[in-house]
Design a protein around this nucleic acid. Structure first.
Lengths: 120, 120, 120, 120
DNA sequence: GTGGTCTAGACCACA
DNA sequence: GTGGTCTAGACCACT
């Protein structure tokens, strides 16, 4: 599975998103080491600087921390990941529902649409 | 309510999205005239060139057409709007479901989350 | 006067410092435009990215703001600059006094040393 | 009191500075043995290589010398320490005065600022 | 012309 | 090997 990026959104943001999703889905656990900047850049076929930027930005968001010369790690507090999960899910659901309302769907219609989509 | 744009996505794309939503929700009807580039740019507090670009792109997508000296108009065929609606809804639903799956939610959980959100 | 940087401190931090000093000494006034990234990079004989980083970092510190396509500007509130001035002066003085105390100087000696230095 | 380092300046330089200050304030006397690399690295929570590098640099500056199997020692000549003291004081004072001038302070203002700071 | 992002690749401090 | 910084230079969105 090669990673493909949306050309209209900065790649470093998409990398941050990718890692956040892995934190939420428990592919990445608290305290676990992230791939090194170099490895990640090869995996994603992206410049090391771009990965670096994603890591720095996530460190600023207190989701990861860096040990000089050792690597970058998911923060140790599971609460942080839980909070992230809540925030991201809420954000996505709210945005989705708002958009569907803007399209003129009632809540019932919305649920039916999703159910139909899931059953396919 | 002033329009606020996401700094990480090209503004012309966000303007296109805005207009498409208005077409779908019937705030903009087939054949109706869009605000002039100048007016729209003032409303959105955006450079006229940016609005212009959004209009041109939408013309390329055959959603609007331009009459010299008169302005830009939504295409007259209602089917086009219907098709747009289907496409955008499908796109949004598919994207939303995919993301929720990436978060590790089952389909049942997903439905429950939405129901809970709607009932608030 | 060519700018020379201390090899042991990141250049972008030294550029930030430079600009802050100019804000404090009123070479740069609230609302004033900074040199463009490219111009500044030529003036300082430094890569544009390095200047860019300094600007972004200062934007995060709310000392400057950016208008897309127009440039980077000192924030308009003079209070911010005053606060910066207070902070930086206090920081420098406190650090200096602390160091001189660590060297074993009394306050009287410290004052004499400075007076002698100033009169040279 | 745990030692905390400024992440933007090489740690070995900060360690050198620390030792020099101790020499100047006579916490470390001519001929006295420095903590072993291993002990020092534990105290400072730093990699032994980093301490080692600080020691080597200081040996190059002729401020310490190493006896094989016995450890690292402050040089025996008190004049060296005196000279170091003069140099560091001059350096700090000059740098401080220069910075305050860059901030736009006159010599009088500078003295007043320090006096006010000392009297607090 | 202006900032924002990205690539390709280098050198450094640190473990 | 690992992150942090920097250069050289490109392309893009926006004014």
């Amino acid at each position: 599975m090669t990673q493909v990026f949306d050309g209209n959104i900065p790649i470093y943001l998409q990398i941050m998103d990718l890692i956040k999703k892995q934190m939420i889905s428990k592919e990445l656990l608290p305290g676990q080491k992230l791939s090194s900047v170099r490895d990640m850049s090869k995996q994603l076929e992206v410049n090391p600087n771009t990965v670096q930027r994603a890591y720095v930005e996530m460190e600023r968001e207190m989701l990861v921390y860096t040990k000089r010369g050792q690597g970058t790690f998911i923060v140790n507090e599971p609460e942080v990941v839980l909070k992230l999960r809540q925030e991201m899910v809420l954000d996505r659901v709210a945005k989705f529902v708002r958009e569907m309302e803007e399209f003129g769907f009632s809540h019932d219609e919305l649920l039916k649409i999703i159910e139909r989509h899931l059953s396919e």
